[in-house]
Design a binder for these strands. Structure first.
Lengths: 218, 218
DNA sequence: AATTAAAATGGATGATCGTCCATTTAATGT
DNA sequence: ACATTAAATGGACGATCATCCATTTTAATT
């Protein structure tokens, strides 16, 4: 009764519409993504959008939500490969965020398209903020552990700045990818970030990434 | 004969149209900026757009160009206050880029709106790249001078990374401002950036900004 | 003051937009 | 096999879009 063939087909069409919407936004932009364009890509009938979502705006919103969830799935998956030490977790965040799975033409196009609309539609703004509380807390916790092992004054503020800076750096790298996809280089981006981190926490990071510190020196 | 009253009025209407377009894009977004909306804001007649620019697309392109030029005017103006030492020039870039004159709601809204469309329209992409060759070279020259005065190996690569990182950081701060305009704090953003720079070049930067080194030690 | 021509006007045009709903299709229940 | 009903269809609708051009306005010239 529940989840019969009927429900299945319905749900399938829902997803088809969302993915057609995302494809369209990524490929031809927000402005040109019309109802006609969407149903054409989905190979479904005109009325489906109204039927399933109530209207185009609601569909776009669902698409933004769907896309955001997808980003976090990818990120979570990649983060699980991280080792236990805080600098390894930071490295995992960086590698994930710059990986081909997370940072690619489609994702970045979608992200900036949604950002472009986010000023007007606050529901979309919520989904277009990659560096939200979750990621921010993850990074902050790791940096705080690191900062406390250094002799830097005010570890809290240091960790806060390091988090703020790291997320800003990652954002900047995404923009770089968006505007210069042909010349963007993942390794260079990674080295640049580690250049800063290794300057700030020399015994935790090197130009190549996290430094393992299994044996505590006292 | 040249620049008679006739020419003047024509040019004035041209600018009025461009500014009405920018206002509209900044306030209600790309998608909702229609010809009707623009001529309504400009208080001019329908045909003016076709007359002056040939069509809406060309007007939007001119608006992007105009906006970009405005950004550089602001930046150039603020950069002239910089002192002669390289770290002072870097500080000037940072202060300019985060100043209220350059980084404000209207500018950032425009910037992201154009970015959202840039994938589709390469002419707009060219104007929506703030961190273009000019700024990049300016920063690189300064960092190279700094790096050569340190004992860091490979000053060229260090300077390249520092430039890349600084521009990415600034980009990231802009995004932060776009998404969280209420909680964004210019001083915090500034300190975060100088935190990284002072870690990389300790005798040239402090948390508060550039370090003057008038008297060379040796 | 009359003439010329450049600039501005605003309504007409056809295309396309998003929404809606009467009808058709097909999965489910009897 | 038939009846029920949820889901899907696609054409019709008015609104709005960008463009264009015959007409009017007005600055410049004679």
């Amino acid at each position: 009764m529940e989840n019969g063939r009927r429900q299945q087909l319905k749900e399938q069409n829902r997803v088809t519409l969302i993915e057609a919407t995302l494809d369209s936004i990524a490929e031809i932009g927000f402005a040109r993504t019309s109802v006609s364009e969407i149903i054409d890509r989905a190979n479904l009938s005109r009325g489906m959008i109204h039927l399933h979502f109530g209207g185009k705006d609601a569909l776009v919103e669902e698409a933004a939500k769907y896309s955001s969830a997808d980003y976090y799935d990818s990120l979570d998956g990649l983060l699980q490969t991280a080792g236990p030490e805080p600098q390894e977790r930071i490295e995992a965040i960086i590698r994930s965020d710059l990986s081909e799975r997370v940072l690619n033409k489609r994702t970045v196009s979608l992200w900036y398209a949604f950002r472009g609309e986010s000023r007007e539609r606050e529901t979309i703004a919520a989904y277009s903020d990659t560096r939200d509380a979750r990621l921010r807390n993850l990074a902050f916790d790791a940096f705080l552990k690191i900062a406390r092992q250094t002799d830097l004054p005010d570890p809290e503020t240091t960790a806060k700045d390091a988090t703020h800076g790291l997320l800003a750096l990652l954002e900047g790298m995404w923009t770089d990818f968006l505007l210069h996809p042909e010349s963007f280089d993942r390794d260079t981006a990674m080295r640049t970030i580690f250049r800063f981190l290794s300057a700030l926490f020399p015994s935790f990071f090197a130009l190549q990434g996290a430094v393992r510190r299994d044996r505590e020196h006292r």
